[in-house]
Design a protein around this nucleic acid. Structure first.
Length: 491
RNA sequence: CGGGGCGUAGCGUAGCCCGGUUAUCGCGCCUGGUUUGGGACCAGGAGGUCGCAAGUUCGAAUCUUGCCGCCCCGACCA
C-alpha cells in the first residue's frame, strides 16, 4: 500500500490534492503558485483541447497566436478591463541580467530598464484588439473568428492545483462582427459549444446562464457562463463567453465601413475555457479510490493486464493479449497492454483505478481455456467475465454505457442539489447543510447580492437562460422579484 | 497579508519535551532468486548539507534567535 488517498469525508480539499498528485496529473513546482502538468495530466488536457479545437473549427474559427507580453499602456485603454485585472498582473521591467559584482549570482542589470514596462497577459483582449485595428477596414473583413491556445498569468493570492494557478493554459476566442445581434449570437453559440463539450465529453452536466453585473467579466456587456456542481456541493464556473459590445472597438478605435459606406465600431466577443476543466473533471466524478475518467476524455480507455503462472503457456497468453489489444485498437479504442513484468496484477489493478482508466481487462490461463476475459469497470467497480467472441464490440458498448451512466449519475446528483426556497433561515441552513444550487428570488441589486455574499459566502452563480418568470419576494430584502436566480458557494 | 500545521534518504515517518556512540522504521530503488486471478516474498546492497544561517555548548536533528519554503483555513479571483 504505497499510495493512500484521504477520503472525501475526512478532508475534501486533501482528497482533491491527493487525486491530482497520486493520479499523476500534476506536481507542485519550484515556483510558488505554479504547477507542473505531468504527462498523464497533459494527455487529459490534450484530449479536451483536441475536441474543443475541432468544435471551434467546425464553426468556422481559426487559430492564431498573439504575444505573451502586453505593453502596459494597452491595458489601461478600457477602463473596466484594467480595473478588473490590475491587481493580478505580473510586470516585466528589465531585459537583462548581469553578474553580481558582490557575489556569485546574477542581479537585474539596472542599465537594462525597459522604457515601457510589459505586462504578462492575464488575457489578450488588448493586444488582440490593437492588432484587429489593422486587420479590419470593411464589412468584408467580418466576421473575424480567431482563437488562440495559450498560457496566461494571473497573480493569485491563493492557488490550487488546476483550479487556480498563477499560470494556466487556456484557449481564448476573440471575434469581431458587423452587428450587435451577430456578436450576441456568437457568444451564445460558443456557450452552447462549451455546454455540449462538458456534457457529452466530460459527462458533466452544466447550467447555462448569464452573470450578474458584479460577476461579469471586466469590460463585457454580458457574460454567459456554464456552471457545474462538484461533489462537495460547491459550484464551479467551467467556461465563460462574453458579449463585449463595442467597448474594445472604441478603446482601440476599430471601425469598419458597411455596405452603405458608413463607418461604425465593430462588435466583439471573447470566450474561454482553461486547464481548470481538469480540476472540474476530477471533482465531478472521482471517488475515494482515485480518479474516475469518462471514456471520451480518458487518455487510456482500456487497459489489458495479463495474469500468468510462471512460464506456463506464457507465450500463448502474450499472443492472446496482443490479439485483444489489436482488436481494440482496430475498433478505435485507446488501449494499453500492460505486460510489464516488474509489477504484479494486484498492484496494476490499484494503479489503474487510481488513474481512473474506465475499463480494465484481465486475462489469465483460465480465460485462455474458456475464451473469456474478466472486465472491470472503474465507475461502478463491477466485474464480470465476458466471451472473447465479439470482444471489441462488447468493450466499445461498455465504454459508451460508462460514459452515459457517469453523466446520468452526475445529473441525478445535481437535480437533487437544486433547491428552491423562499425563507431566509432555510436558505442559510441549506447552504450549510446541503450545499448545491439554491433557487431563490433576488431583488436585482448589487447591494443585496453583496450583502448575501457577506452573510453566507454564497454568490449568484448565474441567472439561467430561458429562466421561468415568476413573481416573488427577494430572499433577503423582501422586495419584489420577477425570477429566481441560482445561488451557491463556489470555487 | 492574518490564523493553524509542517520541514529528517525519491515518498511517508520515529527521534526533539529531557543535547551524548555509527540518525529509526516502512514504502520505493539496485543485484540475485522464488513468484504473479486485488498493492508478493527471501537474501544482499546503495542512498542523508536532519529546510538555511548564526548563536549557546566539550558536544546540536534536539536548546535560542533570525530567515526561507510548503500545505490547510480566511481576505482576492476563473
Amino acid at each position: 500500500m504505497s499510495k493512500v488517498i484521504t477520503s472525501r469525508q475526512e478532508d475534501y480539499s486533501q482528497w482533491y490534492n491527493d487525486l491530482v498528485i497520486k493520479g499523476s496529473l500534476a506536481d507542485y513546482s519550484a515556483v510558488r503558485g505554479c504547477m507542473v502538468i505531468k504527462p498523464y495530466g497533459f494527455a487529459l488536457w490534450e484530449k479536451m483541447r483536441d475536441q474543443l479545437d475541432k468544435m471551434f473549427k467546425d464553426t468556422g474559427h481559426v487559430n492564431a497566436y498573439f504575444p505573451l507580453f502586453i505593453p502596459k499602456s494597452f491595458l489601461s485603454k478600457e477602463a473596466a478591463h484594467v480595473e478588473g485585472f490590475a491587481k493580478e498582473c505580473a510586470v516585466v521591467t528589465h531585459y537583462r541580467l548581469k553578474k553580481d559584482p558582490n557575489g556569485d549570482g546574477v542581479i537585474v542589470d539596472p542599465e537594462a530598464k525597459l522604457e515601457e514596462e510589459l505586462i504578462i497577459r492575464p488575457t489578450s483582449e488588448t493586444i488582440i484588439w490593437n492588432t484587429y485595428k489593422t486587420w479590419i477596414q470593411s464589412y468584408r473583413d467580418l466576421p473575424l473568428l480567431v482563437n488562440q491556445w495559450a498560457n496566461v498569468v494571473r497573480w493569485e493570492m491563493r492557488t490550487r492545483l488546476f483550479l487556480r494557478t498563477a499560470e494556466f493554459l487556456w484557449q481564448e476566442g476573440h471575434t469581431a462582427h458587423a452587428t450587435s445581434e451577430e456578436a450576441v449570437a456568437e457568444s451564445v453559440q460558443m456557450l452552447n459549444i462549451y455546454a455540449e463539450f462538458a456534457e457529452k465529453y466530460m459527462a458533466m452536466p452544466v447550467i447555462k446562464g448569464v452573470k450578474t453585473e458584479s460577476e461579469r467579466f471586466a469590460g463585457a456587456i454580458e457574460t454567459y457562463c456554464i456552471e457545474a456542481l462538484m461533489q462537495d456541493g460547491k459550484a464551479l464556473q467551467a467556461g465563460t463567453s462574453h458579449f463585449l459590445g463595442q467597448n474594445f472597438a472604441k478603446a482601440f478605435d476599430v471601425k469598419f465601413s458597411d455596405k452603405d459606406n458608413k463607418l461604425d465600431y465593430v462588435w466583439a466577443t471573447s470566450w474561454g475555457v482553461s486547464t481548470r476543466l481538469v480540476g472540474a473533471l476530477v471533482m465531478a466524478h472521482s471517488d475515494d479510490d482515485g480518479l474516475i475518467l469518462p471514456p471520451r476524455i480518458a487518455p487510456i480507455q482500456a487497459v489489458i493486464v495479463p495474469i500468468y503462472k510462471g512460464n506456463e503457456k506464457k507465450e500463448l497468453l502474450d499472443a492472446k493479449a496482443k490479439q485483444l489489444e489489436k482488436e481494440l485498437k482496430d475498433a478505435g479504442v485507446s488501449v494499453k497492454l500492460d505486460d510489464n513484468d516488474n509489477s504484479r496484477p494486484g498492484w496494476k489493478f490499484a494503479e489503474y483505478e487510481m488513474k481512473g482508466v474506465p475499463v480494465r481487462i484481465a486475462i489469465g490461463l483460465r480465460d485462455l481455456e474458456n475464451n473469456t476475459v474478466e472486465v472491470a469497470r472503474r465507475d461502478t467497480k463491477e466485474k464480470k467475465n465476458i466471451s472473447t467472441d465479439g470482444f471489441a464490440a462488447s468493450i466499445t458498448k461498455l465504454l459508451e454505457d460508462i460514459q452515459q451512466q457517469m453523466y446520468d449519475k452526475a445529473l441525478a446528483y445535481r437535480a437533487q442539489h437544486i433547491t428552491k426556497t423562499d425563507d431566509w433561515n432555510d436558505f442559510v441552513k441549506l447552504l450549510d447543510e446541503k450545499g448545491g444550487f439554491i433557487a431563490a428570488h433576488w431583488d436585482g441589486t448589487a447591494e443585496t447580492e453583496e450583502a448575501i455574499k457577506e452573510k453566507t459566502k454564497a454568490t449568484i452563480r448565474c441567472i439561467p437562460l430561458n429562466n421561468p418568470q415568476e413573481a416573488g419576494k427577494c430572499i433577503l430584502t423582501g422586495k419584489p422579484s420577477s425570477q429566481r436566480v441560482l445561488f451557491a458557494r463556489a470555487y
